[in-house]
Nucleic acid binder design. Sequence first.
DNA 1: ACCTGAACACCGTTCAAGT
DNA 2: ACCTGAACACCGTTCAAGT
Lengths: 201, 201
Amino acid sequence: MARRSEHSLEEIREMVLNAAENIVIEDGVSALTVRKIALEIGYTVGSIYMVFANMADLILHLNARTLDDIAAQLEQVQEPDPEQCIEALAKAYLHYASTHFNRWHLIFEARLPEGATIPVWYQDKVDHLFSRVEARFAELAPQRAEAERKRAARAVWGGIHGICVLSLNGTLDRVGLYDVEESVVLLVRNFIHGWVAQGVD
Amino acid sequence: MARRSEHSLEEIREMVLNAAENIVIEDGVSALTVRKIALEIGYTVGSIYMVFANMADLILHLNARTLDDIAAQLEQVQEPDPEQCIEALAKAYLHYASTHFNRWHLIFEARLPEGATIPVWYQDKVDHLFSRVEARFAELAPQRAEAERKRAARAVWGGIHGICVLSLNGTLDRVGLYDVEESVVLLVRNFIHGWVAQGVD
DNA sequence: ACCTGAACACCGTTCAAGT
DNA sequence: ACCTGAACACCGTTCAAGT
């Protein structure tokens, strides 16, 4: 057969990512297979390997989309007060994780094949997410050293993520979404107050 | 062939779990397959299904061991001061996660098959881990309501876990182990100070 | 009763062959 | 140059058949 140039490689790439995204959204991480993607876009398995090196590469690019998506959501948050802003960012992250659970979950499922390293462009997207929080910590305590603020941002953001993981994955804790938000707010608020008040380093 | 009663079912069960544990420790989560376990213990694949319902069941029991192991490590922590104790528990958890990464990682990899629910005995083990931290929060603020203390314990423990996840998985953040410990301590200390000082609820 | 091992329905990945 | 589809080396799970 060898259907010729019905779509450009760029188009196929896009089709693959769209199909993969839908499969993950609808049927979860474990349902994502090359064969299912191929079926969905009307090509055969071999074609996928024209536009992605392998499954891990495909997932990496899918996750990149999700990171952009999360970034866009966080961008919506516009609180003037830095403390309230960090709180709102935390809530927005939790909200994204709970409403787009499967896509969010895929980010942390990704195990790069041995020896492989995360591409710089991907790491940049992650750093960009962190930078939002860091910037607010800078506003919160302009007099402190940058390294100190960075560590605070990482600690609190890691903390937020951890509560999301334990609560949403359901492996560790069964609790309503309302309670999760309460926990997140509790963590952020108390950490910031502790940090601002006496500057434990 | 049908080798008869060389080992009791109980013994085979133990052999399976031991083999599985070693495979995970040495070659990681993705290397854990029924065929590999069978090869390791000198039985065929079918035998595994005499002692475990399926792979998910096997992994659940492997994770139960890991939870016991973590609990035993946390039991070692004997700090009289509640704040320092929580800090030490956090460090011990981080230490376990980093030195037994593969086993720790498997706990959160487990996706129970659709419709399945976590057994009570397993959930009890998880609750037992949480209770250690809760008890210390109770000492920290005996006058506060139990629900409040539980939420604080969950928030801070989730937070500790999150920092471990983001740092150790390496998907999100590349940073030395020393820095991770600093972040964990930073989170715990500031959260507790904020929580004790003004009781944000 | 215990255990085998072949069979089934899947995976991801490769690549000679077709248009 | 683009794409196929069969082949390869794997999975987890089942179950008739052997001792």
